[in-house]
Design a protein around this nucleic acid. Sequence first.
DNA 1: CTGAAAGCGCTTACAG
DNA 2: CTGAAAGCGCTTACAG
Lengths: 346, 346
Amino acid sequence: MPETLKTPSRPTISDVARRAGVSTATVSRVINRAAPVAEETAQRVWAAVDALGYTPSAPARMLASDRTGTIGLVIPEISGDFFAPMLRGIENGVRDLGYDLLIYANPNPEAHRGAKFPYPLGEHNTDGMMVFTDSLEEEEITRLHRIGFPLVLLHRMPPPGLDIPSVGFSNKFGARLLIDHLIEVHGYRRIGFLAGPPNNEDSHWREMGYREALEAHGLEFDPAWVRAGGFDDEVAQATMVDWLRDGLDIQAVFSGDDESALGVMVALREAGLRIPEDLAVVGFDDIPLSRHLTPPLTTVRAPIEAAGVVAARQLANLIHGEIADSLTLLPTELMIRRSCGCHIYK
Amino acid sequence: MPETLKTPSRPTISDVARRAGVSTATVSRVINRAAPVAEETAQRVWAAVDALGYTPSAPARMLASDRTGTIGLVIPEISGDFFAPMLRGIENGVRDLGYDLLIYANPNPEAHRGAKFPYPLGEHNTDGMMVFTDSLEEEEITRLHRIGFPLVLLHRMPPPGLDIPSVGFSNKFGARLLIDHLIEVHGYRRIGFLAGPPNNEDSHWREMGYREALEAHGLEFDPAWVRAGGFDDEVAQATMVDWLRDGLDIQAVFSGDDESALGVMVALREAGLRIPEDLAVVGFDDIPLSRHLTPPLTTVRAPIEAAGVVAARQLANLIHGEIADSLTLLPTELMIRRSCGCHIYK
DNA sequence: CTGAAAGCGCTTACAG
DNA sequence: CTGAAAGCGCTTACAG
């Protein structure tokens, strides 16, 4: 057995060049198909690549070419049923465009204040970044935008005055359709709303759609009908337990997302109330589980995954110096099932 | 307004050095706290860093220091309730150890056969990689291991003969406890099993635990009692529909994971069967939803997130040249609820 | 405690 | 179609 080498250091482009009897420039051209190379020369290069098991060093490439080939994603945390489809869309979108995906889950954006090199993701290691909701401080978003760094926002608007492309879906329109249905088809007049986390823009627009529908039908809006759902099943469940104790005087509740609707349903069931007879329940997002609930949940289908794909595409445009759309709102769709009171079979 | 610069190119370490009146070596030492530097000098350097808005180029650092500071993760696809907690654990673990996370969702490992530079993740852009189940071809795992590249496997064993650290949890033991409970407490003698995807090792060991329990109690094992659940609610639902049509002659079914148990419950409910009176149902994983089902699902709690953290830690050990454990099996825990036939309130 | 200089492994005008 | 050479922005012995 031969002496063990400390670092069996990887072959470099020079090793390949030497073995193929060409210059490193030629090897580079062959590998990157960056310029015409004689067929016979190219073959010798590939043969050398195979023989040595050569893989180009990414850092060296990045340094020499001034592009990382990497897109960054900042998210607040990895949880909930929203997360998997969104990440799937982003990863597919990014990959199809030839980029790698570097992700950073930033549970506490404020903690980065005043740190020396605040973020693990930025202009130093990516060609552009996607920022989900409020996972990155406005200060940092502004700084990056000012230095001309490509940025796309997901499910949030840019800070005032900055033209940064934003991708989401039509929350307000979807909510409007949903509440219109409750009012027009079922005749409910007292409808509650379970809001998502404070500052969540998806929740904000859903609430706007809800209010708009009430107003359009001349129904009074009672602030007491809006409570915290947190886009979370446990938060929503606790809220409904309280609400029931306080005396629940509504006919239907629009739970801000399907996950919180789940908590609502648990709370109602445990209180011995029937859905939709005693209280109709509707949600938003149409997660896979929703059609399997008892009763199946009436909700709004949100193109979560598609939004991720589109965001990746917009970002690639920006990186390539092309124009990107300031605002992309993907359409949402009403999914009528049983929990609103409809008698749909299957 | 001043002339717009094409590329407002970022400040470099030389710019900082010039402004602070020191050498680039000193700037590097200050920034990396790599060597003692006079307090007064350091202050001048930091002041220059702030004034210029300097952030060190990651590629240049990587090239010069021969480390990327990045850990790679290869997964087959982003879906299911298993995914979010696993990724959360990995991201937290990786981040706490000072690394970035590069992820690659590889839906079709075989497609990479014979490609020139097969994988977007590898020794060229990461210091080490975590490989989940069968997301990477054995050939590639073997190649990476042979060149001494740090690797940790998640929820799978290494290819024969290779000593690559593997992290998972005790599927067999958990399943054994679960089935023992069904037999000893409830007296079921005919128990079915809904297997996960072919080649899924978690599923394999769960099945082994199931069989071991039958055998230990002198119960016959009937191959017809094992059907495909796919770790997927729709697959499991379809399977149960078929099984009911064929004539279901079991008293309890162990659905390979909680997601498939969900499909089982839907199928039974739609067939008008009661759980657990007509058929007991148990699962594995204890996803958040499970305790909210009707009836609440008896299952085995799997430390999915913790396994991710541990895997990151093992990989860091390997990268730092320290020893890593060949096999880490985190403990699982029986969660008795109602779907097995127990009368647990709350 | 500090600096001059080599070197990391590529890409890319420039020249031929 | 091909090569010699500069340069990307850092880190790190080496010397003092």
